[in-house]
Design a protein around this nucleic acid. Sequence first.
DNA 1: TAGATTGTTAATCGATTAACAATC
DNA 2: TAGATTGTTAATCGATTAACAATC
Lengths: 217, 217
Amino acid sequence: MSKEISLQALQRLPLYLQYLKALPADKDIYISAKVLSSALGLGEIQVRKDLAAVSDGGKPKVGYCAAELIKDIENFLGYDNVNDAVLVGTGKLGKALLSYDGFKAYGLNIVAAFDSDPGKCGIDESGKQIFHISKMENLCERMKIEIGIITVPAASAQEVCDILVKSGIRAVWNFAPAHISVPAGVLLKNENMAASLAVLSKHLSEKRVCENNSNSI
Amino acid sequence: MSKEISLQALQRLPLYLQYLKALPADKDIYISAKVLSSALGLGEIQVRKDLAAVSDGGKPKVGYCAAELIKDIENFLGYDNVNDAVLVGTGKLGKALLSYDGFKAYGLNIVAAFDSDPGKCGIDESGKQIFHISKMENLCERMKIEIGIITVPAASAQEVCDILVKSGIRAVWNFAPAHISVPAGVLLKNENMAASLAVLSKHLSEKRVCENNSNSI
DNA sequence: TAGATTGTTAATCGATTAACAATC
DNA sequence: TAGATTGTTAATCGATTAACAATC
């Protein structure tokens, strides 16, 4: 376990996790790479390779123990440690993420939000506190927050990111449609809806039929 | 123009577009691949190759005409044709997307939403109509809708997708944390937040410093 | 044992980068 | 012309897939 893993493979792990967790929670459920791959629309060898990177391995002729796999993947991804996060920008999208309670399955816990508009500060519908942005640095440092979620307009994204970095954030999840840059050691993950829309729009403008299933992206 | 383009390159186009649109709207503004690449944190050659795929090209020693590039990229991506879409599932995320007005810059126009809960039907805060899911097929067919946005819980994602496909949808944008499958010719784009979280969580659990800027994903 | 399934090493494929030629 | 910049062909790199060996 814990061999080389590609960025692509890393991003497929939640897919396996989601499938495995939907299975009955029985110690003795085994599943083969073949079943997994066809259920998820992936290659069978790819699945074996992905799982080999995170798990002690399956048993020939039997498959992988589902319960073990879940444990191994969660452990590999660090979902067992809770990752505290702050969110900046409480517009529509920010509020939606703030009240989404599905993140805790991934170890993500949004502890507070920030906004530059004093009128938006207070308790959110989600029950979470929204502070003025001026309080962010202090709070992040005190609570040793490591994840910052950016849901501000593009124009202020870099500025907000800089404050987050100064506050000790080590990973930034950016939803603003803007390119931002971070210093070495800080991870930047862009949630790039514009990129997705480009793919959709291009497909429609082509009006051509491509090959099956390879058209899932 | 319109040579081969890789999926990656296609998804970088909105980045160029966003940068170029932030420039003064002057017919005579030229920009070099060098400036573009360093502003966006990309490789210079990569930028030239990307632009070559969509544009008639730049002028040696001068660069690319910004206004031309914008036109070429928008044309390539089909942002000039309006793409009508429907959204299914009016939970927090669905509502956030419904009222987000930034999509029209990408040619995306959400004309209506659907939900299986009759209590949620009516006029949304966004001013858009929410219909019962039973009306979806008929409405999509009549209006020749080609894009379906799925923001329902994972458990009903496949079912909703099947109805969309039956209704003539040709591109599906899936926000549900579920694997769904579509027939040939229909494009499926997953907006995979779980995948992003995997990258963030793994980075933090590693507690190691990686190389600069290559850590933007 | 035979057969099914895992795991690994080698081959292929696609995307990025480097080297260089073309052009204003 | 010389120099800056674009554009293309070749080399590299990384990820996926294929072939095959190992194991229960």
